[in-house]
Amino acid sequence: MQKQRTMKKEYVQKLIFYVSIIGLPLIQFMIFYLFVNFNSLLLSFKNYEMIGGELTQSFAGFTHLLDAYKLLFTEPLFAYCLKNSVVFYLLNVISGTVFSLSFSYYIYKKRNYSNFFKAMLYLPAIVSGMVLSVVFKYFFNLGIPAIVKMVTGTNILGWTDNFIVEYYMVVIYNFIISLGSNMLIYTGTMASISESSIEAAQLDGANKYQEFWYIVIPSIFRTLSLFLVTNLLTIFNGQHNIFNFFGQKASEKLYTFGYYLYIQVLGANGNLVEFPPIAALGLALTSFAIPIMFTVRWLFNKYGPSEE
């Protein structure tokens, strides 16, 4: 009897521990992912209309979705969105693979000042993205023109008003900002590589480049491919800090799909009437994202390097 009671107590304690650990993320997942996406899916097929002061809703069928596809293929604005979204993704890939991997390897090998670089490169990731972009914006808008004026006596444009450089400044900012967080994941994964594999490679006479290419990359390839595949989604939903810099008035040359959706929702100002077409556009973009993601994942699994 006493034993049963102890077991029950242990079971309850384990259950409490389990719920307290898993509960919060589960609730978060349900509210901010499942519910939001399910509601967005339903919205795509609804029609809200104010008739005689009453908000009415009806089944819209595929009207909004078809309109969304038509919009995507006929509106010239979406050509900018596609170009910019792909450019930002590719930059993210370059900074998140080439540079992050190089830095991560440097830190993993505990070279000079590696901890300092680790802290410095990760620092932007712990500061709020909005704060960081505001600091960046004001430095280039006010700081640089003030320095130039002090040194040369000439006035130059702040970069948000300088349409020649604004695009490149956003590109540079996104490049820098995506370095840190990836690096931390890679160093963590590299730390789990078996020391014996590295030693074996070194005994076989592998140089650092060969060690990196033939041992480290295959060992972390699952993490790397996960990063590349999940980041593909940012082509269709990433606003890439455009809003932080330009509010709702960015030049169309800077538009991404994510930014477009973001300002549409913001501009709707809680008006249900305007939500279904926006939700349908999101669904249309998802219909492109899913097959691309699965194809890329399949390609990585089939042709990517193996640990064996």
Binding site: P76, L77, F163, K249, S251, E252, Y255
Partner: peptide
């Protein structure tokens, strides 16, 4: 506009 998003950005461009 249908393509352009703000008079300011467009005129400036």
């Amino acid at each position: 506009g249908k393509t352009y998003t703000s008079v300011y950005a467009s005129m400036r461009d």
